[in-house]
Write a protein that binds this DNA or RNA. Structure first.
Lengths: 214, 214
DNA sequence: TTGTGTCTTGACCGATCGGTCAGTTTGCTT
DNA sequence: AAGCAAACTGACCGATCGGTCAAGACACAA
């Protein structure tokens, strides 16, 4: 009978799937697609390997699902930008949001990084499709800002790359940061200081002064 | 007989080793330590797998040798910094040198990135030892620059991370950049423009004006 | 030619890979 | 209590993993 599946059923299914996804995200982030093994994921999720394959159809399906989830988390970023916006406010928000996202989803961010490092075999279409349009739209608006004299005449493409790289560094290179600074993890105060530094330097570097509402 | 090994012997040995190292660097960079297979490396070097293991003792020895080679390439960077140096000149050189290094050794840079992403299992000691001292020394000098009023009072740690991340981005995220910009590779003009952008924004962001000798 | 050390390689090892499947357990409906 | 579909899992599959080894191929000195 197809009738209403019991609440507890779907609940537990979601719970188990979430356990698998969390475990898989960490393993894929650490070792990349090829280097990750379903056995390692199953162990981390405390499940038999066959059970992982029962919920996720295959290694590839599991990986694609994680990539998709991570990209949807980024969709909200910098979505309300217009030619009339205050550049300082928008860029400041952009940097801060990116830093927060990296802290909130460190494994997902690393997973994304590993995918790019591997040459984006699964994300190629997304990069040259959806994301490319996203960038072109923001580039267009930023050029208008420059033309209006709201900010220095910098190439928006390099500016976007700068913000991406500078913020992602704190999650993807966390091992290097921890080793170099000699502490197991950055304190919240450190992260806020680093964020303020990035906002300060990048805005000033583009001829902008701190946004009023911050 | 131990006597003078023929010139051609050591020559061909070096040549074969170089072939293997080049192939291995690319494979490790793309798939990480675990994801790389000796078979793939052997194929790329056009050698039987057993021959790869004859020259390099093991997968781990090969990997460590590549890491060591990459780190020695970076040793010369920013080595002549003193409290009396011109900050603008030093930071400008730092950024430009890093960009050039990334272009010269893209596979090695990616290999390094993959190692960090995996949690630096083999480089942990280097990061918390040699590299940490390197950073502390530069931080000390930059703080003096700030105290002398030569530049804004920014935390040198975040500044170093910013330069590392912003420059490395162009090699490690090349797949993303190519996808987003819709071109197979950045032209030299693009790279120079990006470099000038980074120098300009970061220096200005730290309260510095372009160095005289550039 | 013969001896000697290096180089080269196919065959093979146990372990692990992603994935399948048959058989059992479980939880809910009737 | 009976029935049934979903959940679960140990055992197994062929392929590939890193690594070993013994047997040739090769270059060169005596």
């Amino acid at each position: 009978m197809k009738s209403t599946p019991a609440r507890t059923d779907t609940d537990s299914r979601h719970a188990v799937e979430a356990r698998i996804l969390t475990a898989a995200e960490a393993v894929f982030a650490q070792h990349g697609y090829r280097g990750a093994s379903l056995q390692a994921i199953a162990d981390k999720a405390s499940l038999p390997k066959a059970n992982v394959l029962y919920y996720m159809r295959s290694k590839q399906a599991l990986y694609l699902r994680l990539l998709d989830r991570m990209m949807r988390r980024w969709n909200a970023v910098l979505d309300d930008i217009t030619p009339e916006s205050d550049p300082a406010q928008v860029l400041s928000d952009f940097i801060r949001t990116k830093m927060v996202l990296g802290q909130r989803f460190p494994e997902g961010s690393k997973l994304f990084a590993a995918e790019i490092l591997a040459g984006a075999p699964f994300l190629g279409e997304y990069l040259s499709g959806e994301l490319r349009l996203w960038v072109e739209e923001r580039v267009r608006i930023m050029r208008q800002w420059s033309a209006q004299g709201k900010m220095d005449d910098v190439d928006p493409r390099w500016l976007i790359f700068l913000i991406w790289s500078a913020t992602q560094h704190y999650t993807e290179y966390s091992a290097q940061i921890h080793g170099v600074l000699g502490q197991d993890s950055l304190t919240n105060a450190d992260l806020e200081a680093a964020t303020d530094f990035l906002v300060g330097v990048i805005l000033k570097g583009c001829g902008l002064s701190a946004p009023s509402g911050a």
